[in-house]
Design a protein around this nucleic acid. Structure first.
Lengths: 129, 129
DNA sequence: TAGGGCGGTACCCGATCGGAAACCAGTCCT
DNA sequence: AGGACTGGTTTCCGATCGGGTACCGCCCTA
C-alpha cells in the first residue's frame, strides 16, 4: 500500500498505487456496523436475530445491508439451514477471521488512548472546528 | 471497546458500550483521505501543496476538509509560519503518530492477503451480490 | 503590469448512507 | 383462528460525502 518515505525529501507522487487505492483499504473496512458484526461472529456462527441484540438500534435493513456487504467481500458466509426448523446462520470465513487481528490491534490502541482521544476531540471542538 | 465473547453463549446485549460506540472507533478513521494523509506526514511536516501531489485527484476542498477533520480530532496540527514567506505546515501530533501503529498493522495485513481479498471480492460480485 | 503559485472558500450537484415505517411468507404456539 | 417470532424486502426521506467549478487575497517573479 505504501512505500515509506524518507525525512524531508519530496513526497513520491507514486506513493499510492492508483490500482490498489490505499484510501479504501486499511481503515474504513465496510460500513458503520461491519466491525461490530465481525466481533459478534468471533465466537462462532450467529443468527440474524442474535446479531440484532448487541447491535442496539440497528434496523433490519441496515443489518441486512451490512451483512450482504461483508458476504460480497468474502468476510462472512450466509448459511441457510433448511428443514422444518429453518434458520439462517452467519459465520466468518478464514479471511474474515484474519481481519480480527488488525481489528484487535486497532481496538487495543483505542482503549489505551481513549482519554487522550476524548480530550483532543473536545479541545478541537472548543477551538471552533 | 469489546468484551470478548465465549463460544455459543448468547451475545451480551451490553457488548458494545453505547457511550463509546465501537462502530465509530476501530476501523473507519476519518474520511476517505485521512489515512493517506497520515502516511504522508510520517516523515515530518508537509505543506498543503506537497500533500496534493501523492493524493492524486484530491481537490483542494476535499483535502482541506480532511485536514480540518484530523485537526479537530487532534491527530494533526496546522502551523502557519508568518513572515514575508508565508507557509502552512501540517504535522502529526503525538496522538496522530500513535495512530500509525494500528495503521501499519492494517496495511501489512492487507498486503499479505491482497490476492485473497481480490479473489473473494470477484467471487462475491460474480455470485450476483 | 501580468501571470503564476500558494492556500484556501463558496456554491452546486449527484451519489450514497442510514434510519423509520410498512409489509411479507413461513412456522410455531395456544 | 389468532398472535408471535424469524428473516427479511420495499419505499421513503433527510443527512452526509465527495467531486467540479469558480473565485479569492497574498506574494513573487518576469
Amino acid at each position: 500500500m505504501t512505500k515509506p518515505q524518507a525525512g524531508q525529501t519530496p513526497l513520491d507522487p507514486e506513493m499510492f498505487d492508483p490500482v490498489c487505492p490505499s484510501p479504501l483499504v486499511p481503515f474504513r473496512v465496510g460500513d458503520k456496523w461491519a466491525s461490530s458484526i465481525l466481533r459478534c461472529l468471533e465466537g462462532g456462527p450467529r443468527r440474524f436475530s442474535e446479531l440484532k441484540v448487541p447491535l442496539r438500534g440497528v434496523t433490519a435493513k441496515s443489518l441486512t445491508q451490512s451483512l450482504r456487504g461483508l458476504e460480497r467481500d468474502g468476510f462472512v458466509v450466509r448459511e441457510v439451514r433448511e428443514g422444518p426448523e429453518r434458520r439462517v446462520d452467519y459465520a466468518l470465513t478464514p479471511l474474515g477471521r484474519g481481519l480480527l487481528g488488525p481489528l484487535d490491534t486497532a481496538c487495543e490502541w483505542t482503549r489505551e488512548h481513549w482519554d487522550e482521544l476524548i480530550d483532543a476531540q473536545e479541545a478541537g471542538v472548543r477551538a471552533g472546528h
